[in-house]
Amino acid sequence: MTHYAMVIDLNTCVGCNACMAACAMENQTPVWKNKWRTYVPEKEIGSNEMVSRRFFPHLCNHCDNPPCLTVCPTGATYKRPDGIVMINPELCMGCRACAMACPYDARYEVTYGDIREGKEFYGELQRTSPSMDKCSFCAHRVDKGMKPACVQTCVGSARLFGDLDNSSDPVAQIVMSGAAQPLMAHFGTRPNVYYIEDMKRKG
């Protein structure tokens, strides 16, 4: 059984935002209102000569126990057998409960206005109805044997994508080693995006 996951190394992310650009073009996200499927916020940490800048890529964590799925009243949010959490825009009525339930701030709105704007911005738009939206691990690419756009484009190899159920996969090995940890696992969400901490090295 395949169980997709991502590892993000905070030590090698340089904050170039190429992942955001690649994702936006691949998935036609409403960038005109600063909404992205993956986002890289930066934060200045420390003071004086100890100051450092931290880049923290975040995206949907494709949780194994996703609160966004349990609160979805129409069944628009669903989980594929390979672990990818998806949204069916045709079923989504846009109540935003999923965004309220997500502890990772992974979801945003796509309105009727965004669809009009998207047609002008991208030329041809894949979506036809408004809905909530989020990262799909580029499921359409993964199904063709390709990597998600953000992973493919990452210049520092800060993002790795692989199968947790394949013990020879580098992602599975990093996760099993304990070097990478999920975010806020105490919520019981069982996330599938893991982070290699940078603060120990910087601190």
Binding site: T74, G75, C92, G94, S129
Partner: peptide, 10 residues
């Protein structure tokens, strides 16, 4: 709601 006609499902 973002997508009014989809309310039929609920």
């Amino acid at each position: 709601l973002l997508h009014h006609t989809a309310v039929i499902h609920v």
